[in-house]
Structure formats: C-alpha cells, structure tokens
C-alpha cells in the first residue's frame, strides 16, 4: 500500500483543523469569565453554563426538542419497518414511486417543505400544535430510518427464514423470532439517526414552530440573530458534548462510519 507523502499529510492536517475549528472555538469561549465573546486565556468560569440553565426559554425549548425528536424517531421507525419490508421484499407496481416518495425529504429542500407545511398548518389552524410539528419531523427523518432498514433487509440471509418456515414456523413467528431480531441493528441505528436529525432540524422548523413549540435549534437561531453573548457558546458547547456522547455510544453499538457513510448515499 502506498503511503501519504509529507505534502499530503500537511494538507490532511489543515483539513482536520478546518473541520474541528468552529467546534473547538465554541467549547473554549463557553468557559470565558468575561461578558464578551473571548477565549479565556487565564481563568475559566462556568457562569455562562449557569446562565443557560437559568434561561427558562432555552430550557423549555430543549425539552420541546427532546420530546419532538423522541416521538418523531419512534414513529418514523414504526412506519419505516413495514414500509422497508414492502420495498425490500415484495415486487409490486408502484414500488419505485413509493420508495421515491418516502425518500423525497432528502431531495426536496427542507426550506420548501417548511413553507409548504406552514401553508397547510395555516389552513387547518395547526400552528402551535406539538402533535402537528412532530408529524412534520416524522416526515423529515423517516428516510434515514427507512434507508438503514432496507439495507438491513437486503443484506439479510433469507436461508435462515426459509429454514424456520420449513420447520413449521408461521409467518408471524418467523417475523418476530428471526426477521425482527436480524433487523435490530438497522432499527437502533435508524432510530438514533432519526433522533439526531430531528433534534438538529432547523430549516423546516423555523417556519412551523410557534412560541410554545419552539425547538432548541430554532431558539438558538433566534437568539443568535438578536444578540450574541457567551451564553450562546455555552449552549453550543453543551450540544457538542451531548453529540459526542451519542456518537461514542453509537460507534460502540453499530460502527459510526457505517451509519454515516451508508446514510448519505
């Protein structure tokens, strides 16, 4: 195997630095004792983290995001499991169209989905409803769950199911005892990916949240356009930390590179 030359490694170092720079800077600035956005070279302080927890709007929107993402990911998985079975296992007319429709939120810009759903919500007076907001999030995160599950099903060895069937197991038993357990890594990975994408979703949510249902990224977007103080850095650092924790867990569970590479094709 060829080795990378010094020039290639220097380029690589720059790229890695570029990718990490904005994440590192928010984590540093979060610990500033000053009132302005600055890097704490000397003493560090947790005052801005305290400010985050005392900011009732931020805390409220964190809980909103947590609730929306948990329910949206769960519903998305519940919808994606049977849909994936149909798409991966059965041959029927309209299969491509069905797959295309369920994957469309990856192609239709979230901005366009946002204004389109805003129009629907305005007509049926659904603005301010957490349930409708969650339904919109389900739509956006279903493709991630569906893709991992279709991949899990197509990679599955059918011989195991056929063996169970020939030994007299019924369709329900085969599904419950064989197919579902074999899909489990896809289901867990799909759920986590759906959860993260719902938790981070800002472009669509910005149009369809109302003051009571504002999610964390939307709240942060609004705060960042109004005034910027180190509290923004502290929230951001908390999010980076939480994301890192989830990633370590996901990596142990499933192999993060597999999920990330597999999910963006």
């Amino acid at each position: 195997m060829q080795r990378n030359g010094p020039l290639a490694l220097a380029f690589h170092t720059l790229v890695v630095g570029f990718m990490l720079a904005p994440l590192v800077i928010v984590c540093l600035v979060a610990f500033t004792p000053a009132n302005t956005l600055s890097i704490p070279w000397g003493e560090v302080s947790l005052r801005w983290f305290r400010a985050v927890f005392e900011h009732s709007d931020l805390v409220q929107s964190f809980w909103n995001s947590l609730a929306v993402a948990t329910i949206a990911a769960t519903v998305a998985v519940a919808l994606a499991v049977p849909a994936a079975l149909a798409i991966a296992r059965l041959r029927f007319r309209g299969r491509q169209a069905l797959n295309g429709l369920l994957m469309s939120p990856l192609i239709v810009p979230h901005l366009v989905l946002g204004v389109a759903i805003l129009r629907l919500f305005a007509l049926i007076d659904a603005r301010g409803s957490s349930a409708w907001l969650t339904a919109a999030h389900v739509v956006v995160v279903t493709p991630y769950a569906l893709r991992l599950m279709v991949a899990a099903l197509t990679g599955m060895d059918r011989a195991i199911e056929q063996a169970a069937q020939s030994l007299g197991a019924g369709t329900a038993t085969v599904f419950r005892r064989i197919t579902l357990p074999l899909m489990l890594p896809g289901i867990t990975g799909g759920w986590v990916l759906a959860f993260i994408n719902s938790f981070d979703e800002v472009t669509m949510s910005i149009f369809i949240t109302s003051p009571q249902t504002v999610t964390l990224p939307v709240r942060m977007y609004m705060l960042a356009t109004e005034s910027i103080d180190p509290m923004m850095a502290a929230v951001s650092a908390l999010i980076v930390g939480l994301t890192a924790l989830v990633m370590v867990g996901l990596d142990r569970l499933y192999g993060l590179d597999k999920i990330l590479v597999g999910s963006s094709q």
Partner: peptide
Amino acid sequence: ILAPLLVSVVVRAFG
C-alpha cells in the same frame, strides 16, 4: 471529517 454532520448547523454557524 464526518462527525460535524451530526452537530447542529446553528452551532457550526455560530462557531
């Protein structure tokens, strides 16, 4: 390289 994909875009813009 890929992990920043999982961090909210608002956080990255703020950074």
